[in-house]
Design a protein around this nucleic acid. Sequence first.
DNA 1: TATTGTTATACTCTATAACTATA
DNA 2: TATAGTTATAGAGTATAACAATA
Lengths: 169, 169
Amino acid sequence: MPTHFSGSAADVRALNLLIKLMRASMTVKTQLSRAVTGHGLTEPQFGVLETLYFLGPLSPSALSHKRLSSGANITTVLDNLEKRELVRREQSEEDRRCSRVQLTPEGRRLIARIFPGHVAAARELFSVLTAAEQETLAELSRKLGVGIVERASRAPKAPRRAAQSAGRK
Amino acid sequence: MPTHFSGSAADVRALNLLIKLMRASMTVKTQLSRAVTGHGLTEPQFGVLETLYFLGPLSPSALSHKRLSSGANITTVLDNLEKRELVRREQSEEDRRCSRVQLTPEGRRLIARIFPGHVAAARELFSVLTAAEQETLAELSRKLGVGIVERASRAPKAPRRAAQSAGRK
DNA sequence: TATTGTTATACTCTATAACTATA
DNA sequence: TATAGTTATAGAGTATAACAATA
């Protein structure tokens, strides 16, 4: 798509970056998802297991924040994982509205078995870049991701940074 | 998740890059999708319209290759676009198995209206990086994406380049 | 026989809104 | 009233397999 588009230099640069970045990330994602689907897991399911594996038991609402999806959606994904007995929900005793989601032994076993291969596959894919290039790419990605989130939180709605709560009331 | 993982230096580097790259691309994608869903389009629908807009009429099979999804899936997405009269299918006269998918005037109008804002939004997001950083990120992304695809096509199935058809029979 | 495309089928994901239980 | 989570509902995406039409 890079052709046919005429705009400012900044527009052309942005579009070029957008295409390259999306294509690269999609390619990586697609390649890596093979290992995951091979174990009968969908990508969201894998993401939830991985999150629980590294962060420990979490409430559904915490999971929905971490995974950036709605509560109802997390409920669905957890239902599917619970059917396969990979996670378990336990009700909290202090606040009985809350629950804690944790890996079952089988769930832990599965993610522990998949994860090293997942990393190895990523290492293999990334080996088309030198170590230095990988580090540069990681750093620029980090700066981009963090920068966007920070900017968004600084100016929740308005396009310019203006004191929003000081506006009309 | 970067914590808690112990592996070789290459593994740690790969996992770090994977997390940063996926997070950045997801953040960009999520931000940009708002404009698209605002027009009642899903991401796959937008992708198909965009592809037809820049490449002209294509067959469903060509679309499924471009978009990296199955033929049946493209059929579904095209059905949904056709319901809204944004694309039209025409049967080829030479090879009557084939068809050509093209934008309707409304489809062209819609994508032409959305696309500039899409680019502008990308430009705005990427402005957290300098122009030089954007170019570096694009170049490394390109190298990564192209490198993976080339490597995969060189060794279609086997992990090592060995004459596959010379194996057992 | 091989190719193009659709149908049939079956899930999973996803969101919004309404609801339950608790605080 | 507000919060945590589920249910209800609806639709879109996705894939595999079977099929039709054509080459």
